[in-house]
């Protein structure tokens, strides 16, 4: 057998022994780490969802132009031609009163019955203008100077608000990442130091026999990685449950929200949380070992 594989079996056995020595506090640590990482995964989830929504809203850059209802069909066609000439406009199309009603009925889905409360179709026809979102300001300026237009509805406000939310989420994400990183490092390094304290006789003997630090410390590093990885798995499971619940209950009630597929959220966030948990385990263990060396 290869010497590394031979020693790896020993390291795994040793880390299992270390885990058993402080079994209960290790279990509590795994749960704490799991919950901490779960909070981080929720922040990341919010971050990703809002980024996606902004991307979709930006891609679907459109302006609804409500014209003077007294305009004749010919005037409406001239108006549409004029709008198409504006720089940054890619196309225009007329949405009739009936089509506007059908679109809303489609959006409301099961709740579309609410529209039946109206005696008449409450919607008005409009011109749907597809635009390049970066040109929105100049397009709005030109539209406002045109005759025959009553009201213009754009999604600039929505984008601006979403972008503000995204900035807040990004800041929260970074803060959460730092807070979670520090608290996980403290938990792990404390556990490792406790393990070192419980095994100080064994460590002392190995040092006297000439064992290198890496040989002595490796089981402790494995233990730390094991603790945080299990915490990461707990966070992943909780995230999966929350996402499943969210998609089946909450998001179906808001069908007009453009949301990414469940897997496209779960997999990258899950992988990130697992990788982060492993990394925090290594750093936390090294920190615990380093602090112990300083003490010695």
């Amino acid at each position: 057998m290869n010497k590394r594989a031979y020693n790896l079996a020993y390291f795994l056995k040793e880390s299992k022994t270390l885990f058993k020595i402080d079994f209960l506090s290790n279990i509590f640590s795994i749960i704490s780490i799991g919950l901490i990482l779960f909070i981080l995964s929720l922040v990341l989830l919010g971050w990703r969802v809002s980024s996606y929504v902004i991307q979709i809203v930006e891609r679907e850059g459109e302006i609804n132009v409500y014209y003077d209802l007294s305009l004749q069909e010919k005037d409406i066609n001239y108006l549409m031609e004029d709008i198409e000439k504006i720089e940054g406009v890619s196309s225009t199309s007329l949405v009739s009163q009936d089509e506007a009603y059908n679109r809303m009925a489609e959006i409301l889905g099961k709740e579309a019955g609410i529209l039946e409360l109206f005696d008449e179709n409450p919607f008005t026809p409009f011109i749907e203008v597809k635009i390049h979102i970066e040109e929105v300001d100049s397009i709005l300026d030109e539209l406002e100077s045109m005759l025959g237009i009553d009201y213009i509805r754009d999604n600039k406000n929505i984008i601006d608000r979403l972008q503000n939310i995204l900035i807040i989420l990004k800041v929260l994400g970074v803060l959460a990442l730092v807070a979670i990183g520090v608290s996980t490092l403290i938990v792990v390094s404390h556990i490792i130091r406790q393990g070192i304290y419980n095994n100080r006789d064994q460590i002392n003997t190995l040092e006297l026999l000439g064992a290198p630090d890496i040989f002595i410390g490796f089981p402790f590093i494995l233990e730390g990685v094991f603790l945080t990885l299990l915490g990461g798995v707990i966070a992943f499971i909780l995230l999966k449950l929350v996402l499943g619940l969210g998609y089946s209950k909450f998001f179906t009630a808001l069908p007009f929200l453009p949301l990414p597929a469940e897997e496209s959220l779960l997999i990258p966030i899950g992988i990130f949380i697992l990788l982060l948990s492993g990394l925090l385990g290594i750093i936390g263990s090294l920190f615990g070992l380093a602090k112990d060396n300083e003490k010695a």
């Binding site: 002392n204 003997t205 040092e207 026999l209 000439g210 290198p212």
Partner: peptide, 15 residues
């Protein structure tokens, strides 16, 4: 520490 690898210590309290 490296030198100790060439030594076989037998401690009074066994260790």
């Amino acid at each position: 520490r490296k030198l100790r690898r060439k030594i076989g210590p037998v401690f009074q309290e066994f260790k």
